[in-house]
């Protein structure tokens, strides 16, 4: 199943709406609550990243019985050095964003920690695409 959401850059008041919607869908599909938590925590971080850094973006969630694959595609400044951005505590967020309690440089590392796979591609001055993959209904979990 595919679900799509629009995200508006700079609109912190509604940041998290797409995550909440996807969370509701996953609950209705009876996905294990521990998996839902991992997905939503990573997704919320990624959604806030679009709001904080990009002009606008789209979230495309692809859900099937073995995995949840979420692509977040934004139009924005892009990330010049992805490896550096993956380091804990590294942030380019403006002081304005930090004052709102965001931009502590934990975003990407936290997303990676909560997903089974994460792919980030970026083109400077064009935008960033993040793909979050969480395996669900695994026999061992």
């Amino acid at each position: 199943m595919v679900f799509e959401f629009e995200v508006q850059g700079g609109d912190f008041a509604t940041a998290g709406n797409a995550s909440s919607q996807i969370k509701k869908i996953l609950k209705q599909l009876n996905v294990d609550h521990r998996d839902i938590k991992r997905i939503v925590v990573a997704l919320y971080e990624a959604e806030v990243n679009i709001v904080a850094h990009a002009f606008k973006g789209r979230i495309i969630a692809n859900i099937d019985t073995s995995e949840v694959r979420i692509r977040l595609v934004d139009e924005g400044p892009g990330i010049p050095d992805i490896e550096l951005a993956m380091q804990q505590g590294y942030s380019t967020a403006s002081s304005e964003v930090r004052e709102m309690g965001f931009g502590a440089g934990m975003g990407l590392p936290n997303m990676k920690k909560n997903t089974d796979e994460m792919h980030v591609t970026s083109v400077v001055d064009k935008g960033t695409t993040v793909e979050l993959i969480v395996f669900i209904n695994q026999p061992t979990t």
Binding site: M1, K27, Q28, L29, N30, D64, T65, N137
Partner: peptide, 12 residues
């Protein structure tokens, strides 16, 4: 109590 079905494929 939110799930539409216990089986995920059915729920989908």
């Amino acid at each position: 109590m939110l799930m539409l079905d216990e089986n995920m494929a059915e729920a989908m």
